[in-house]
């Protein structure tokens, strides 16, 4: 029988050490050269791979594991003009104790709110371990001056946000002003202090997977802790192939630089089945190290109840009904 060389890391030596990153990002031209030197993404092949992985059949113990994991990586989100302190407090309660009738259900990873409600969320979550994330930088369009974006960020951080979800300047990206996009991110990252920074690419406006890959690398080179697909306000948002392209990016970025970056698909993941498909994608693309709330999140609101219903189906053996779960 064959000799096994053992599992193989993607690359043994970092090819892009941090001192080289400085060179890469130094000018628009060097950034452009680097980003356009990344391998292309063939749309049909990428979608075929994602479709194949979505046929994985996750049953019994694997499904139980996946459901609990999915709950624990949710960024439970409310981002509406009509949000109020009351709505946010309810959300925080649900985040800590998703199913009041079953204490074995894990808490979600974080709640995600607008900056002006961070203080309310922070008070409501207390020492539970559930993080408070805030969108910032003139979310969702990002069409504001850098000063405004930084003020927006500083405001959320001052109110106690553990995590900041910023948006990139898609206009600048699409016309090739990569330095401008990068500088925004660098500045916001600085304003974050110890808060972790998620950089929203708004893939629905980037139009191609090539752009998604370049924007992912751009965000990571700028210091993003997470790359996030979407604001949830633009369609298409989180699709399996888009998440896959971003997972390939964090995998390759780690191999090249040694630094690990998280991925957050958000927008459009509504069912337990969708969530589990994303977990399969993580497992078989970036690898199991990313199966952790620290490195993978799903931004969602209605997903949680479907996960709870599926979970109850698995524990009781009968199908659950929506009336038995809280609406928010």
């Amino acid at each position: 029988m064959p000799h096994y060389a053992g599992a193989v890391p993607l690359l043994t030596e970092p090819t892009l050490p941090l001192d080289r990153v400085t060179d890469v990002v130094s000018t628009d031209a060097s950034l452009r050269r680097f980003l356009h030197g990344l391998p292309g993404v063939d749309q049909v092949g990428a979608e075929a791979r994602a479709a194949m992985l979505s046929t994985r059949s996750i049953k019994t113990a694997a499904k139980q594991f996946a459901i609990d994991l999915a709950i624990s990586i949710i960024d439970l989100t409310t981002l509406e003009g009509q949000d109020t302190p009351g709505k946010v407090r309810t959300l925080c309660a649900k985040a800590q104790r998703p199913d009041p009738s079953d204490a074995s259900v894990p808490a979600v990873a974080a709640v995600c709110v607008y900056p002006d409600l961070v203080a309310v969320a922070k008070a409501a979550t207390g020492p539970s371990g559930v993080k408070v994330a805030s969108v910032a930088t003139a979310f969702p369009s990002g069409r504001a001056s850098r000063a405004v974006k930084l003020a927006d960020t500083a405001d959320a951080v001052a109110a106690g946000a553990d995590e900041i979800d910023m948006v990139i300047d898609r206009g600048a990206f699409l016309v090739g002003r990569y330095r401008a996009v990068l500088e925004d991110i660098v500045a916001v990252k600085q304003a974050c202090g110890t808060a972790r920074l998620k950089v929203i690419l708004e893939v629905g406006e980037l139009a191609t997977y090539d752009n998604v890959r370049r924007a992912s690398w751009l965000a990571m080179l700028a210091g993003a802790d997470f790359i996030k697909t979407s604001t949830g306000k633009v369609q298409p948002a989180a699709t399996l192939p888009v998440t896959q392209v971003m997972l390939e990016a964090v995998r390759d970025f780690r191999a090249a630089t040694g630094r690990m970056v998280g991925v957050k698909p958000a927008g459009g993941i509504r069912t337990a089945k969708d969530a589990i498909r994303h977990l399969v994608l993580v497992n078989e693309t970036a690898g199991e190290e990313w199966l952790d709330p620290r490195w993978f999140r799903i931004g969602a609101s209605t997903l949680l109840n479907d996960l709870l219903m599926q979970r109850q189906r698995m524990t009781t053996g009968r199908y659950a009904g929506p009336d038995y779960f809280t609406v928010d």
Binding site: D42, G45, A207
Partner: peptide, 11 residues
Amino acid sequence: EHKTVWHPVGI
């Protein structure tokens, strides 16, 4: 000989 060529159509 008949040669058949395939290529994906995408963006």
